[in-house]
Design a protein around this nucleic acid. Structure first.
Lengths: 159, 159
DNA sequence: TATTGTTATACTCTATAACTATA
DNA sequence: TATAGTTATAGAGTATAACAATA
């Protein structure tokens, strides 16, 4: 095969878009694709703060519920309490969250934002709102509300 | 504190639902919550087949594009080609996917489903469709189409 | 030079099981 | 007995950087 033909074949192969079967019709697949894209935009948005969507959620939850313990945080996030340990370890090492002694129960910690954590969160909040506006730029406000409503109703069978 | 009061406090703490701040208004958060719930239902649905949504997607892609190589698969899935290696390693170890010599390019493998892989996929497909119907049970067919449309339009700014 | 597959390495996220201190 | 936090362990999934074989 002559060189020019090889290259043409390679480029053709690269351009020939693969078929996706039933995937584009599946809610689960589109959910996953959307989440990957949103995650990338989030990371780019808060660049310099080095924070993940999950960590942002933890900061919001602790700010909204000061004194929350790790088990309660796990329930709120939908993860096991053993998973919470490492999450809080990372945030504590960065001095964004503190484990205080819980006044009523010596088994547990009362989680709080440090002043630095509050400051970072104050900076993050408008950035995250800008990120939200950007990912949803192609959707009207009504469509954005519809999307959130539909997402909340997934996996919630009629009662 | 008397025992009965302790218990009452604990139960009250457990019942007092934490506040979620701005999270419920964020598309990213609802996307994540929905994906976790969908993933759990998927795992329960294909129980016994021990397959993840990502692995199901790989099987569908290989079936729809027999002879695809690993790099092309990575592009189609949106992951690095080094990530594809371990994914295919696992599916090959389970004899669901085979690395065949690529006819035109000795650097690459032509990926194919084994007969066992085709068989499993034939079993999985109706299970996955049932799973899709279940997670979307609270949505009308029109709402399901709307949801998929809105998800596809996320992170796709107006051109 | 560019591409394919691979390895080494590292990090996040996740879970289960078992342990300890405390309730 | 039950709960809170922890540790050990394991596995999936992800990425970057470098390498050999091939194009």
């Amino acid at each position: 095969m002559p060189k020019s033909e090889e290259k043409a074949t390679r480029i053709a192969n690269r351009r020939r878009k693969p078929a996706f079967g039933i995937l584009p019709d599946l809610i689960g697949y589109n959910l996953r694709q959307a989440q990957v894209a949103v995650f990338l935009d989030f990371a780019a948005t808060v660049d310099g703060h080095d924070i993940t969507p999950g960590q942002f959620g933890v900061l919001i939850l602790i700010e909204a519920n000061p004194g929350l313990n790790q088990s309660q945080l796990g329930v709120a996030m939908g993860v096991d309490r053993s998973t919470v340990v490492a999450v809080i370890d990372r945030l504590e090492a960065r001095r964004l969250v503190a484990r205080r002694p819980a006044p009523q129960d010596r088994r547990s910690y009362a989680l709080e934002l440090t002043p630095e954590g509050s400051r970072i969160l104050a900076e993050l909040r408008p950035e995250v709102l800008a990120h939200e506006a950007r990912i949803a730029a192609d959707l009207s406000p009504a469509e954005q509300r519809t999307l959130i409503d539909l997402l909340k109703r997934l996996c919630k069978p009629k009662r």
